[in-house]
């Protein structure tokens, strides 16, 4: 997976989309890999990318649009600088995930699926990160974190925010 950290780039670039398409040219049914890589390159898959992908893969724009909209991983507009995903599945629930989610939405002042006003963090829910013996689990971008309580969550947020503002990380 070539996904870059969310929020690192959001400028549309025809050349970069073209490069992704070229890299997957021989792949059968390669739409998902292409979309992953475009989102990795550009941070999102907007209408221009949809049009280019459709044209290149000989699909209709509607089809590509339908696929993008189906999968929670794909976004039509860029996320915040960091994406924090809180696992709300049962194993994590048994260890207080609901309380953690409540803490997260209240402390960040956003709902699940939303981005903080400063653009530093997009908060999302996820169902299972495969860390069910060390729950509650959270994923910060691609980094899995186990046994997260409110305090640990706040530390993760602080670190993500520092990263977003380019400050040295705590």
């Amino acid at each position: 997976m070539s996904e870059v950290a969310p929020g690192t780039s959001s400028e549309f670039s025809e050349e970069r989309v073209r490069a992704v398409l070229d890299a997957h040219r021989s792949e059968r049914g390669g739409l998902l890999p292409v979309l992953h890589d475009i989102q990795g390159e550009l941070g999102c898959i907007d209408e221009r990318a949809v049009a280019m992908v459709a044209c290149d893969l000989n699909l209709s724009q509607a089809e590509v649009f339908g696929v993008v909209s189906f999968y929670p991983d794909f976004r039509a507009s860029p996320s915040g600088a960091s994406v924090i995903r809180i696992c709300r599945a049962e194993a994590c629930q048994s260890m207080g995930a609901e309380a953690l989610a409540r803490h997260a939405t209240e402390s960040l002042g956003v709902g699940l699926g939303d981005t903080t006003a400063d653009g530093s963090i997009t908060l999302e829910q996820v169902f299972c990160l495969g860390n069910c013996a060390l729950s509650p689990a959270v994923m910060v971008n691609e980094k899995l974190v186990g046994r997260v309580d409110s305090e640990r969550f706040d530390a993760l947020v602080a670190r993500a925010r520092a990263r977003a503002s380019g400050e040295p990380q705590p």
Binding site: E47, S60, Q61, A62, E63, F65, G66, S69, F70
Partner: peptide
């Protein structure tokens, strides 16, 4: 054989959509 329509979203949010244009006239 035009493939101008899709279902967007999924689950309860599944909706018929004429592609990214959002309306029939500007779609494929």
């Amino acid at each position: 054989g035009t493939f101008a329509l899709t279902i967007t979203g999924r689950g309860f949010g599944s909706r018929v959509a004429p592609g990214p244009a959002g309306n029939f006239f500007d779609s494929e």
